[in-house]
Design a protein around this nucleic acid. Structure first.
Lengths: 116, 116
DNA sequence: GAATTATTTCAACGATCGTCGAAATGATGC
DNA sequence: GCATCATTTCGACGATCGTTGAAATAATTC
């Protein structure tokens, strides 16, 4: 998981409707959910939804497959997992060293030499 | 931690330079880092950096204080922790129910059973 | 109080965003 | 084939983004 992938995923999730869409897909499970079902569940116009699906898909957070006339979108848990892993590893280290509520739990961290 | 806060934080981190800035501040520890140090460390123009600091600060991810003529920016580990908590709670549930690699890493959290 | 250092404010720019209405495409059933 | 359902494509719109150069504001030193 590279930084650019993480930035892309964050950008994809950093929007109200898209975060809702992704949450819904996560809840729906690995079998996914038809575009129309998402549309009516969230009250979004179908074309607007296509726009958001594209963003999620380009970020790698979602997959599509066709089932009859429906398009089934499904969350990619592994990718989301990678994003979370990157964030805990790169944006939280140092937290536990300060006892600051521990962004990253009890992981051993490689000490960085700091010039005091 | 509400959804709107999470969206704001994600939007703040969903940009190359800002993610770098935040990572640097996380590494710098709770004492933070002068704006100028960040600027030279990342090769960013000071006014551009101010723009990004504002976004991070509005998202609640960063604090500022003045020290002499320098402005010291510091990461807010608790907020980042809250974001990660929201994501693992809201965007990964169902993952372990499907045995789908478990979105949440080794983070300590009110766990169910998993272990598969 | 003038010069210097550190940072912010301001105006501007092209680029991308999120949404809409209308039209096009794909798959199904008659 | 024709009608219908599900989704996508297209063109447009105002709004926000990220960056820049120039000027302004704070704090320090002399």
């Amino acid at each position: 998981m590279e930084k650019s992938d993480v930035v892309a995923a964050l950008a994809a999730l950093a929007q109200d409707n898209r975060l809702d869409v992704f949450r819904l897909l996560v809840q729906a499970g690995p079998d996914g959910m038809a575009a129309g079902s998402v549309a009516s569940a969230l009250g979004l116009a179908p074309n607007t939804l296509t726009f958001h699906f594209d963003r999620l898909r380009n970020a790698g957070l979602v997959t599509v497959r066709r089932d009859g006339r429906s398009m089934i979108y499904a969350a990619r848990y592994d990718v989301m997992n990678g994003v979370l892993g990157f964030l805990t590893a790169n944006c939280c280290q140092g937290a536990e060293a300060q006892g600051a509520a521990g962004c990253a739990p009890k992981v051993k961290r490689k000490r960085i030499k700091e010039r005091a």
